[in-house]
């Protein structure tokens, strides 16, 4: 029997529930920790980002309209799929320098994080919503409602747990998102996209691009149909200012979480969900 020549995986992006290559035809090289080429990743363009926002926008109403239980089921399903493909994640993580134990721990933590937020989908409304005792003859209540389309930069240094920690609370709350994967380590993010794609997550709810933050950051911040921007790595003060300025053009919500340790206690809590929620208050008269 002749030796099996391994089939190398082509890593493409994840937009609108499909896996297209970048429209720009550009790529960048991804190396393992021994400086060997392991893949050619897509170098996303501004146009890719705009396509992704369009997908996220069309998916928004349907996803936000899913009931909380259903969203929880789907998040749980993502965790199930991840569990079944843990070997691939671990392999990709060890390739970029994680020890076997570290890789295992990272996948474990990522799966647990998904479960954590899956459990929150039908609870945060009860914890953060309210019935308000107004002094007039009205029934008045406040519900959380998704902010809309969220653009996010996943942390560079934590390519799997960081990405999952960013995406899970955003979609748990009914938002849709466009995420730029870790620039040096994009491969696990595409494997995660494959998990999403087999987990009943409707196409367009999560869109994952690979590429250079330097090129895309300003488009993320400036897009007029994006409602919120999440940044996780502290940018240079110059870029920080620029992003905030661009965000102001449509009063974009800026969510800044400069977290270095995604295992830390404060890297997960329901306030990650409410960061991407609007309070909607409804009044109705009470009477015969």
């Amino acid at each position: 029997m002749s030796e099996h020549l391994e089939i190398l995986k082509t890593y493409k992006m994840y937009i609108g529930g499909a896996f297209p290559r970048t429209e720009s035809g550009r790529f960048y090289k991804v190396f393992n920790n021994e400086d060997e080429l392991i893949a050619n990743a897509c170098l996303a363009s501004r146009k890719d980002f705009r396509n992704a926002v369009e997908s996220a926008r069309s998916a928004f109403s349907g996803w936000n309209g899913r009931n909380a239980y259903n969203r929880g089921q789907i998040l749980y399903r993502i965790a199930e799929m991840m569990e079944s493909r843990r070997n691939e994640f671990e392999k990709e993580l060890t390739a970029i320098g994680f020890t076997t134990n570290e890789a295992r721990a990272d996948v474990n933590a990522s799966i647990d994080r998904l479960i954590y937020y899956a459990g929150w989908t039908d609870k945060y409304q009860q914890v953060f919503g309210s019935v308000n005792p107004v002094a007039s003859s009205h029934f008045n209540f406040s519900l959380m409602d998704a902010t809309g389309v969220v653009a996010a930069f996943a942390p560079d240094a934590s390519p799997l747990l960081g990405l999952v920690s960013v995406v899970a609370p955003i979609i748990a709350g009914g938002n849709t998102c466009v995420v730029l994967a870790s620039e040096p380590y994009p491969l696990v993010s595409i494997t995660f996209a494959e998990v999403l794609n087999s987990s009943d997550v409707p196409g367009g709810v999560v869109n994952i691009l690979t590429g250079k933050k330097e090129e895309l950051a300003e488009h993320f911040a400036g897009h007029m149909d994006v409602n919120a921007l999440m940044i996780t790595d502290k940018p240079s003060s110059e870029l920080h200012k620029k992003l905030d300025e661009l965000a102001s053009e449509n009063v974009k919500r800026m969510v800044k979480k400069f977290i270095t340790d995604w295992y830390a206690k404060d890297a997960q809590d329901p306030y990650f969900i409410t960061d991407f929620q609007e309070t909607k208050t409804t009044w109705h008269p009470v009477g015969f």
Partner: peptide, 25 residues
């Protein structure tokens, strides 16, 4: 941020007020 059903322009200190999108943060 506010939906008034069969009423309009009602305010109360216990009732949160504020906007989506370009109506504020």
């Amino acid at each position: 941020g506010v939906v008034w059903a069969n009423t309009y322009n009602k305010f109360d200190p216990t009732s949160p007020f504020g906007g989506y999108k370009e109506s504020g943060v």
